[in-house]
Design a protein around this nucleic acid. Structure first.
Lengths: 182, 182
DNA sequence: TTTACTGTACCGTCTGGACGGTATTGTCAA
DNA sequence: TTGACAATACCGTCCAGACGGTACAGTAAA
Protein backbone atom coordinates (compact mmCIF):
# COMPACT_ATOMS: atom_id res chain seq x y z
CA UNK A 1 0.00 0.00 0.00
CA UNK A 2 2.64 2.47 1.00
CA UNK A 3 4.82 1.64 -1.95
CA UNK A 4 6.81 4.10 -4.00
CA UNK A 5 4.34 4.18 -6.82
CA UNK A 6 1.64 5.79 -4.73
CA UNK A 7 4.02 8.51 -3.76
CA UNK A 8 5.01 9.37 -7.29
CA UNK A 9 1.45 9.35 -8.51
CA UNK A 10 0.40 11.70 -5.76
CA UNK A 11 3.28 14.05 -6.40
CA UNK A 12 2.50 14.13 -10.09
CA UNK A 13 -1.18 14.78 -9.50
CA UNK A 14 -0.44 17.58 -7.07
CA UNK A 15 2.11 19.12 -9.42
CA UNK A 16 -0.33 18.99 -12.30
CA UNK A 17 -3.11 20.69 -10.36
CA UNK A 18 -0.73 23.34 -9.14
CA UNK A 19 0.75 24.03 -12.55
CA UNK A 20 -2.61 24.20 -14.25
CA UNK A 21 -3.41 27.19 -12.11
CA UNK A 22 -0.13 28.87 -12.94
CA UNK A 23 0.27 28.39 -16.67
CA UNK A 24 -3.40 28.42 -17.63
CA UNK A 25 -5.69 25.46 -18.14
CA UNK A 26 -4.80 24.96 -21.80
CA UNK A 27 -1.06 25.07 -21.32
CA UNK A 28 -0.44 22.14 -19.06
CA UNK A 29 2.47 20.18 -20.54
CA UNK A 30 3.80 16.83 -19.46
CA UNK A 31 7.35 18.13 -19.38
CA UNK A 32 6.44 20.88 -16.97
CA UNK A 33 4.43 18.54 -14.76
CA UNK A 34 7.28 16.05 -14.60
CA UNK A 35 9.73 18.75 -13.70
CA UNK A 36 7.50 20.20 -10.99
CA UNK A 37 6.85 16.76 -9.54
CA UNK A 38 10.57 16.02 -9.40
CA UNK A 39 10.15 13.11 -11.76
CA UNK A 40 11.48 12.44 -15.22
CA UNK A 41 9.17 12.48 -18.16
CA UNK A 42 9.65 8.77 -18.58
CA UNK A 43 8.63 8.34 -14.98
CA UNK A 44 5.54 10.38 -15.49
CA UNK A 45 4.53 8.34 -18.50
CA UNK A 46 5.13 5.21 -16.50
CA UNK A 47 2.52 6.30 -13.98
CA UNK A 48 0.14 7.88 -16.47
CA UNK A 49 0.54 6.34 -19.93
CA UNK A 50 -0.94 9.37 -21.65
CA UNK A 51 -1.95 12.92 -20.98
CA UNK A 52 -5.57 11.85 -21.15
CA UNK A 53 -5.06 9.37 -18.32
CA UNK A 54 -3.44 12.06 -16.21
CA UNK A 55 -6.32 14.47 -16.71
CA UNK A 56 -8.81 11.72 -16.06
CA UNK A 57 -7.07 10.98 -12.77
CA UNK A 58 -7.12 14.66 -11.90
CA UNK A 59 -10.90 14.75 -12.23
CA UNK A 60 -11.29 11.50 -10.32
CA UNK A 61 -9.12 12.77 -7.50
CA UNK A 62 -11.11 15.97 -7.19
CA UNK A 63 -14.33 14.01 -7.11
CA UNK A 64 -13.20 11.52 -4.49
CA UNK A 65 -11.78 14.26 -2.28
CA UNK A 66 -14.99 16.22 -2.54
CA UNK A 67 -17.02 13.15 -1.79
CA UNK A 68 -14.92 12.23 1.23
CA UNK A 69 -15.25 15.74 2.63
CA UNK A 70 -18.98 15.68 2.06
CA UNK A 71 -19.41 12.34 3.80
CA UNK A 72 -17.37 13.53 6.75
CA UNK A 73 -19.55 16.61 7.14
CA UNK A 74 -22.66 14.54 6.74
CA UNK A 75 -21.72 12.42 9.72
CA UNK A 76 -21.53 15.53 11.85
CA UNK A 77 -25.12 16.34 11.00
CA UNK A 78 -26.35 12.79 11.22
CA UNK A 79 -29.94 12.26 12.21
CA UNK A 80 -31.03 15.83 11.74
CA UNK A 81 -33.49 16.50 8.90
CA UNK A 82 -31.87 17.21 5.56
CA UNK A 83 -28.42 16.39 6.85
CA UNK A 84 -27.10 16.19 3.31
CA UNK A 85 -28.17 19.72 2.47
CA UNK A 86 -26.68 21.02 5.69
CA UNK A 87 -23.46 19.11 5.04
CA UNK A 88 -23.18 20.42 1.51
CA UNK A 89 -23.73 23.96 2.71
CA UNK A 90 -21.29 23.54 5.56
CA UNK A 91 -18.66 22.19 3.20
CA UNK A 92 -18.80 25.44 1.32
CA UNK A 93 -18.43 27.48 4.45
CA UNK A 94 -15.30 25.65 5.57
CA UNK A 95 -13.92 25.74 2.04
CA UNK A 96 -14.36 29.48 1.99
CA UNK A 97 -12.87 29.89 5.45
CA UNK A 98 -9.85 27.84 4.55
CA UNK A 99 -9.46 29.74 1.30
CA UNK A 100 -8.97 26.58 -0.68
CA UNK A 101 -7.39 27.25 -4.05
CA UNK A 102 -9.71 26.59 -6.97
CA UNK A 103 -9.34 23.11 -8.44
CA UNK A 104 -7.59 24.20 -11.61
CA UNK A 105 -7.05 20.61 -12.59
CA UNK A 106 -10.69 20.46 -13.60
CA UNK A 107 -10.21 23.35 -15.98
CA UNK A 108 -7.15 21.74 -17.50
CA UNK A 109 -9.11 18.56 -18.12
CA UNK A 110 -11.98 20.50 -19.61
CA UNK A 111 -9.66 22.49 -21.86
CA UNK A 112 -8.41 19.26 -23.35
CA UNK A 113 -11.85 17.73 -23.74
CA UNK A 114 -15.11 18.61 -22.01
CA UNK A 115 -15.91 14.91 -22.03
CA UNK A 116 -13.57 14.51 -19.09
CA UNK A 117 -16.25 16.16 -16.97
CA UNK A 118 -18.87 13.46 -17.44
CA UNK A 119 -17.97 11.79 -14.14
CA UNK A 120 -18.81 15.10 -12.51
CA UNK A 121 -22.12 15.11 -14.29
CA UNK A 122 -22.93 11.68 -12.90
CA UNK A 123 -21.83 12.72 -9.44
CA UNK A 124 -23.91 15.87 -9.54
CA UNK A 125 -26.96 13.98 -10.67
CA UNK A 126 -26.82 11.54 -7.77
CA UNK A 127 -26.04 14.37 -5.37
CA UNK A 128 -29.08 16.23 -6.60
CA UNK A 129 -31.26 13.14 -6.30
CA UNK A 130 -30.16 12.59 -2.73
CA UNK A 131 -30.69 16.26 -1.98
CA UNK A 132 -34.23 16.06 -3.32
CA UNK A 133 -34.95 12.86 -1.44
CA UNK A 134 -33.89 14.29 1.89
CA UNK A 135 -35.84 17.51 1.46
CA UNK A 136 -39.53 18.11 1.76
CA UNK A 137 -39.58 21.01 -0.65
CA UNK A 138 -38.17 19.97 -4.00
CA UNK A 139 -37.81 23.48 -5.39
CA UNK A 140 -35.77 24.54 -2.38
CA UNK A 141 -33.45 21.59 -2.83
CA UNK A 142 -32.93 22.52 -6.45
CA UNK A 143 -32.22 26.13 -5.61
CA UNK A 144 -29.79 25.19 -2.87
CA UNK A 145 -27.97 22.98 -5.33
CA UNK A 146 -27.89 25.60 -8.06
CA UNK A 147 -26.86 28.47 -5.82
CA UNK A 148 -23.91 26.50 -4.48
CA UNK A 149 -23.08 25.38 -7.99
CA UNK A 150 -23.10 29.04 -8.96
CA UNK A 151 -20.66 29.96 -6.22
CA UNK A 152 -18.51 27.03 -7.14
CA UNK A 153 -18.28 28.00 -10.78
CA UNK A 154 -17.55 31.62 -9.97
CA UNK A 155 -14.66 30.52 -7.80
CA UNK A 156 -13.51 28.01 -10.40
CA UNK A 157 -13.27 30.76 -13.00
CA UNK A 158 -11.79 33.11 -10.47
CA UNK A 159 -14.48 35.64 -11.24
CA UNK A 160 -16.11 35.57 -7.84
CA UNK A 161 -17.99 38.82 -7.47
CA UNK A 162 -19.57 38.36 -4.07
CA UNK A 163 -18.14 40.21 -1.12
CA UNK A 164 -17.60 38.23 2.09
CA UNK A 165 -20.63 39.96 3.57
CA UNK A 166 -22.77 38.88 0.64
CA UNK A 167 -21.46 35.34 0.85
CA UNK A 168 -22.46 35.23 4.51
CA UNK A 169 -25.90 36.53 3.63
CA UNK A 170 -26.39 33.83 1.02
CA UNK A 171 -25.23 31.10 3.36
CA UNK A 172 -27.40 32.39 6.19
CA UNK A 173 -30.42 32.56 3.93
CA UNK A 174 -29.92 29.08 2.53
CA UNK A 175 -29.29 27.79 6.03
CA UNK A 176 -32.49 29.37 7.31
CA UNK A 177 -34.53 27.71 4.58
CA UNK A 178 -32.90 24.44 5.55
CA UNK A 179 -33.80 24.82 9.21
CA UNK A 180 -37.42 25.54 8.50
CA UNK A 181 -37.47 21.84 7.71
CA UNK A 182 -37.56 22.05 3.95
CA UNK B 1 -21.39 49.76 -40.01
CA UNK B 2 -22.34 47.08 -42.49
CA UNK B 3 -19.05 47.28 -44.30
CA UNK B 4 -17.07 44.33 -45.57
CA UNK B 5 -14.79 44.26 -42.60
CA UNK B 6 -17.64 43.65 -40.24
CA UNK B 7 -18.71 40.74 -42.33
CA UNK B 8 -15.37 39.00 -42.26
CA UNK B 9 -14.98 39.69 -38.57
CA UNK B 10 -18.40 38.23 -37.89
CA UNK B 11 -17.71 35.14 -39.95
CA UNK B 12 -14.42 34.59 -38.17
CA UNK B 13 -15.97 35.07 -34.75
CA UNK B 14 -18.79 32.67 -35.56
CA UNK B 15 -16.40 30.10 -36.97
CA UNK B 16 -14.19 30.33 -33.90
CA UNK B 17 -17.08 29.85 -31.49
CA UNK B 18 -18.36 26.94 -33.53
CA UNK B 19 -14.98 25.24 -33.78
CA UNK B 20 -14.22 25.68 -30.12
CA UNK B 21 -17.23 23.52 -29.37
CA UNK B 22 -16.12 20.87 -31.82
CA UNK B 23 -12.40 20.47 -31.22
CA UNK B 24 -12.36 21.30 -27.54
CA UNK B 25 -11.65 24.64 -25.90
CA UNK B 26 -7.91 24.16 -25.75
CA UNK B 27 -7.46 23.11 -29.36
CA UNK B 28 -8.66 26.14 -31.22
CA UNK B 29 -6.09 26.87 -33.91
CA UNK B 30 -5.93 29.91 -36.16
CA UNK B 31 -5.49 27.77 -39.25
CA UNK B 32 -8.67 25.86 -38.53
CA UNK B 33 -10.64 29.01 -37.75
CA UNK B 34 -9.54 30.65 -41.00
CA UNK B 35 -10.50 27.59 -42.98
CA UNK B 36 -13.91 27.31 -41.32
CA UNK B 37 -14.60 31.00 -41.85
CA UNK B 38 -13.75 30.73 -45.53
CA UNK B 39 -10.94 33.21 -45.10
CA UNK B 40 -7.21 32.95 -45.63
CA UNK B 41 -4.94 32.92 -42.64
CA UNK B 42 -3.55 36.25 -43.75
CA UNK B 43 -7.08 37.57 -43.78
CA UNK B 44 -7.75 36.32 -40.30
CA UNK B 45 -4.62 37.97 -38.99
CA UNK B 46 -5.58 41.12 -40.77
CA UNK B 47 -8.80 41.27 -38.73
CA UNK B 48 -7.34 39.90 -35.51
CA UNK B 49 -3.60 40.56 -35.26
CA UNK B 50 -3.13 37.81 -32.72
CA UNK B 51 -4.90 34.88 -31.18
CA UNK B 52 -5.29 36.85 -27.97
CA UNK B 53 -7.21 39.58 -29.80
CA UNK B 54 -9.51 37.02 -31.34
CA UNK B 55 -10.30 35.43 -27.99
CA UNK B 56 -10.79 38.83 -26.43
CA UNK B 57 -13.29 39.68 -29.14
CA UNK B 58 -15.06 36.39 -28.56
CA UNK B 59 -15.64 37.30 -24.93
CA UNK B 60 -16.67 40.85 -25.80
CA UNK B 61 -19.15 39.59 -28.35
CA UNK B 62 -20.74 37.21 -25.92
CA UNK B 63 -21.04 39.94 -23.35
CA UNK B 64 -22.57 42.49 -25.67
CA UNK B 65 -25.06 39.98 -27.05
CA UNK B 66 -26.06 38.98 -23.56
CA UNK B 67 -26.39 42.57 -22.52
CA UNK B 68 -28.51 43.47 -25.54
CA UNK B 69 -30.83 40.55 -24.91
CA UNK B 70 -31.14 41.51 -21.26
CA UNK B 71 -31.98 45.12 -22.05
CA UNK B 72 -34.60 44.04 -24.55
CA UNK B 73 -36.27 41.81 -21.98
CA UNK B 74 -36.05 44.53 -19.39
CA UNK B 75 -38.07 46.89 -21.56
CA UNK B 76 -40.87 44.33 -21.68
CA UNK B 77 -41.10 44.38 -17.90
CA UNK B 78 -40.64 48.10 -17.57
CA UNK B 79 -42.21 49.77 -14.58
CA UNK B 80 -42.97 46.62 -12.67
CA UNK B 81 -41.02 46.07 -9.44
CA UNK B 82 -37.74 44.26 -9.86
CA UNK B 83 -37.98 44.37 -13.63
CA UNK B 84 -34.32 43.48 -13.91
CA UNK B 85 -34.71 40.28 -11.93
CA UNK B 86 -37.72 39.30 -13.99
CA UNK B 87 -35.89 40.10 -17.21
CA UNK B 88 -32.86 38.09 -16.19
CA UNK B 89 -35.03 35.14 -15.29
CA UNK B 90 -37.04 35.45 -18.50
CA UNK B 91 -33.86 35.55 -20.54
CA UNK B 92 -33.00 32.14 -19.22
CA UNK B 93 -36.37 30.76 -20.05
CA UNK B 94 -36.23 31.85 -23.67
CA UNK B 95 -32.63 30.69 -23.94
CA UNK B 96 -33.68 27.27 -22.75
CA UNK B 97 -36.66 27.18 -25.06
CA UNK B 98 -34.56 28.12 -28.04
CA UNK B 99 -31.94 25.55 -27.07
CA UNK B 100 -29.13 27.98 -27.62
CA UNK B 101 -25.78 26.24 -28.00
CA UNK B 102 -23.40 26.88 -25.11
CA UNK B 103 -21.00 29.75 -25.77
CA UNK B 104 -17.92 27.60 -26.26
CA UNK B 105 -15.92 30.67 -27.22
CA UNK B 106 -15.80 31.59 -23.56
CA UNK B 107 -14.23 28.27 -22.72
CA UNK B 108 -11.65 28.66 -25.47
CA UNK B 109 -10.71 32.07 -24.11
CA UNK B 110 -10.50 30.72 -20.60
CA UNK B 111 -8.37 27.78 -21.68
CA UNK B 112 -5.83 30.19 -23.09
CA UNK B 113 -5.86 32.48 -20.10
CA UNK B 114 -8.46 32.89 -17.36
CA UNK B 115 -7.66 36.60 -17.40
CA UNK B 116 -9.78 36.92 -20.52
CA UNK B 117 -12.80 36.50 -18.28
CA UNK B 118 -12.26 39.67 -16.25
CA UNK B 119 -14.71 41.65 -18.39
CA UNK B 120 -17.30 39.08 -17.37
CA UNK B 121 -16.39 39.61 -13.76
CA UNK B 122 -16.97 43.34 -14.12
CA UNK B 123 -20.24 42.76 -15.92
CA UNK B 124 -21.45 40.32 -13.30
CA UNK B 125 -20.58 42.70 -10.52
CA UNK B 126 -22.62 45.55 -11.97
CA UNK B 127 -25.44 43.16 -12.80
CA UNK B 128 -25.48 41.98 -9.22
CA UNK B 129 -25.43 45.53 -7.91
CA UNK B 130 -28.38 46.48 -10.04
CA UNK B 131 -30.19 43.31 -9.01
CA UNK B 132 -29.68 44.18 -5.36
CA UNK B 133 -30.74 47.78 -5.88
CA UNK B 134 -34.01 46.81 -7.53
CA UNK B 135 -34.89 44.23 -4.91
CA UNK B 136 -36.15 44.71 -1.40
CA UNK B 137 -34.70 41.48 -0.09
CA UNK B 138 -30.96 41.41 -0.67
CA UNK B 139 -30.50 37.72 0.10
CA UNK B 140 -33.15 36.78 -2.44
CA UNK B 141 -31.43 38.86 -5.08
CA UNK B 142 -28.16 37.12 -4.36
CA UNK B 143 -29.74 33.71 -4.53
CA UNK B 144 -31.49 34.48 -7.78
CA UNK B 145 -28.20 35.59 -9.23
CA UNK B 146 -26.33 32.54 -7.99
CA UNK B 147 -28.94 30.02 -9.01
CA UNK B 148 -29.01 31.35 -12.55
CA UNK B 149 -25.23 31.47 -12.55
CA UNK B 150 -25.31 27.83 -11.51
CA UNK B 151 -27.56 26.87 -14.39
CA UNK B 152 -25.41 28.88 -16.73
CA UNK B 153 -22.20 27.15 -15.72
CA UNK B 154 -23.78 23.71 -15.90
CA UNK B 155 -24.85 24.43 -19.44
CA UNK B 156 -21.47 25.94 -20.28
CA UNK B 157 -19.72 22.76 -19.22
CA UNK B 158 -22.40 20.67 -20.84
CA UNK B 159 -22.98 18.84 -17.58
CA UNK B 160 -26.51 20.06 -17.04
CA UNK B 161 -28.15 17.57 -14.73
CA UNK B 162 -31.59 19.12 -14.32
CA UNK B 163 -34.53 17.61 -16.12
CA UNK B 164 -36.87 20.00 -17.96
CA UNK B 165 -39.41 19.50 -15.18
CA UNK B 166 -36.87 20.45 -12.57
CA UNK B 167 -35.83 23.48 -14.57
CA UNK B 168 -39.44 24.60 -14.70
CA UNK B 169 -39.76 24.11 -10.96
CA UNK B 170 -36.69 26.26 -10.32
CA UNK B 171 -37.89 28.99 -12.61
CA UNK B 172 -41.38 28.93 -11.12
CA UNK B 173 -39.99 29.12 -7.61
CA UNK B 174 -37.63 31.98 -8.40
CA UNK B 175 -40.43 33.74 -10.24
CA UNK B 176 -42.76 33.37 -7.28
CA UNK B 177 -40.22 34.91 -4.95
CA UNK B 178 -39.88 37.73 -7.41
CA UNK B 179 -43.60 38.40 -7.52
CA UNK B 180 -43.92 38.54 -3.79
CA UNK B 181 -42.21 41.86 -4.25
CA UNK B 182 -38.77 40.93 -3.06
C1' DT C 1 -4.45 55.10 -54.23
C1' DT C 2 -6.27 52.90 -50.41
C1' DT C 3 -8.67 49.15 -48.29
C1' DA C 4 -9.34 44.62 -47.58
C1' DC C 5 -8.08 41.06 -48.28
C1' DT C 6 -5.82 36.14 -50.88
C1' DG C 7 -2.17 32.70 -51.22
C1' DT C 8 1.95 30.70 -50.15
C1' DA C 9 6.12 29.99 -48.10
C1' DC C 10 8.50 29.81 -44.07
C1' DC C 11 10.54 30.04 -39.09
C1' DG C 12 11.17 28.90 -34.27
C1' DT C 13 9.16 26.76 -30.62
C1' DC C 14 6.64 23.56 -28.05
C1' DT C 15 4.54 19.04 -27.22
C1' DG C 16 3.05 14.24 -26.75
C1' DG C 17 4.86 10.23 -26.68
C1' DA C 18 7.92 6.34 -28.16
C1' DC C 19 12.07 4.08 -26.92
C1' DG C 20 16.16 2.18 -25.04
C1' DG C 21 18.45 2.12 -21.04
C1' DT C 22 19.19 1.20 -15.62
C1' DA C 23 19.02 0.47 -10.61
C1' DT C 24 16.64 -2.09 -7.18
C1' DT C 25 14.08 -5.73 -5.35
C1' DG C 26 11.74 -10.21 -5.57
C1' DT C 27 11.31 -15.14 -6.93
C1' DC C 28 12.74 -19.61 -7.37
C1' DA C 29 14.99 -23.74 -9.03
C1' DA C 30 19.41 -26.32 -8.38
C1' DT D 1 23.39 -20.37 -0.70
C1' DT D 2 23.65 -19.08 -5.07
C1' DG D 3 22.94 -17.91 -9.78
C1' DA D 4 19.40 -16.79 -13.37
C1' DC D 5 15.91 -14.26 -14.44
C1' DA D 6 11.76 -11.25 -13.93
C1' DA D 7 9.12 -7.33 -12.39
C1' DT D 8 8.95 -2.60 -10.76
C1' DA D 9 9.89 2.03 -11.06
C1' DC D 10 11.79 4.91 -13.07
C1' DC D 11 15.69 8.11 -16.32
C1' DG D 12 17.22 10.72 -20.52
C1' DT D 13 16.95 11.34 -25.27
C1' DC D 14 14.89 11.90 -29.57
C1' DC D 15 11.47 13.04 -33.04
C1' DA D 16 7.55 14.03 -36.01
C1' DG D 17 4.01 17.09 -36.11
C1' DA D 18 1.30 21.09 -34.80
C1' DC D 19 1.05 25.83 -33.74
C1' DG D 20 1.44 31.02 -33.65
C1' DG D 21 3.19 34.33 -36.15
C1' DT D 22 5.90 36.75 -40.11
C1' DA D 23 6.78 38.11 -44.75
C1' DC D 24 5.59 39.27 -49.02
C1' DA D 25 3.77 39.41 -53.59
C1' DG D 26 -0.61 39.77 -55.85
C1' DT D 27 -5.52 41.46 -56.66
C1' DA D 28 -10.02 43.37 -57.06
C1' DA D 29 -13.16 46.86 -55.71
C1' DA D 30 -14.18 51.74 -54.29
Amino acid sequence: MTNGKMNSRQKILAAAAELAGEVGPGHLSLDAVAQRAGVSKGGLLYNFPSKAKLLEALVEQHLSEFNAALEAKEKQWEGRPNSLGAAYLELFVTDLEQRQPPPSGLLAAMAEDPGFLTPIKRFNRTLLDRLKASSRNEANALILFLALEGMRSLRLFDIDVLSPVEQDAVIASLGATLEKGD
